[in-house]
Design a protein around this nucleic acid. Sequence first.
DNA 1: ATACTAAGACTCTCTTAGCGG
DNA 2: CCGCTAAGAGAGTCTTAGTAT
Lengths: 130, 130
Amino acid sequence: MGIGKRIKEAREKLGLTQKELGDLLGVTGSAVTNYENEVSHPKEPIMYKMFEALQVDANYLFQDTMPENENSPAPANAETGELDKQEQTLIQNYRALNDEGKEKLLDYSDDLVSSSKYTKNNQSQVSQEA
Amino acid sequence: MGIGKRIKEAREKLGLTQKELGDLLGVTGSAVTNYENEVSHPKEPIMYKMFEALQVDANYLFQDTMPENENSPAPANAETGELDKQEQTLIQNYRALNDEGKEKLLDYSDDLVSSSKYTKNNQSQVSQEA
DNA sequence: ATACTAAGACTCTCTTAGCGG
DNA sequence: CCGCTAAGAGAGTCTTAGTAT
C-alpha cells in the first residue's frame, strides 16, 4: 500500500541487507525495518538518498500511493510526446548550447514561469466548490 | 534544490492559493508556505495527497533530488526517451507560459545561440552519445 | 547474521498569532 | 486577501537494547 513494500522489493533485488542499506542512507538497520513495515517513514533528506541507493526513481517508490492512471485526460507530468514547431526550435537551440548556456536558458525559463506576468495563469475555470 | 520550488510551481499553475492547497491537503496555509520555502517537508501521508491535489506525479516533484541518469534495473520509469530530464523541464516550463512568455523564452534562446560564448563551437565539450 | 520490537531521547512538523505587501 | 515568520505544543523518527529465526 505504501512505499515500504517497494523499498523492500528494491533492496532485495540488489541483494542488500537492511543494515547495508541503512549504511548507504546514514541510518541504522532498525530504521530500515521501520520503513519497510511502515512503522515510520523516511524523512525527506533520507528519501533523496534512497533513490540513488536503491537505483529507482520516485514514481517507482510511490507507485502505490498515487492516483490510478486510468483515463486521466490531464497527464501528471510527462506529456512530452510531440513537440510543435516552436518547441522543436527551442530544443534545437538548447542542444546547440554549451553547459553554461544550457544552464542560463533553463534558469531563464524558471524565472519566466515564476513570474505570474508570463504564465497562463488566467482566471480559467477555478471550479467553484465548497 | 528540493521539492519546494516544484510544489509552488504546480500550485500556481493550478491557480490555487496556499490556503486552498492546504485545505486539500488537510493542513494550514502556513504549512504550505513552509513546504515551498523548504522550512519543513510534508510528511508521508500528506505527500500522498499532494500528487492528487497538484495533479502531478512523484517524478515531477522529486525531479531535482534524483540522480541525473540512472539505468534502473527496476521498471522504474517508462517515459519518452526522446528528451532528457532537463529538456523535459524546459518544455514543461515553455508550455506553462502565455504567448508573451513563450516569445521571450524563444528570443532568449536565439540570443544565446547567436553568442559564441554559449555555443559548443569554440571550446571542446563532452561528446554526446549518438 | 538477519530481521524485528519496545522504549525513550531527540528532531521536526504543524498550528496559532502576528507582520507586511 | 495573500504570503511569510516566530514560538511552542505535539507528533513522529531514529537509536539502543534485546529477542527470535
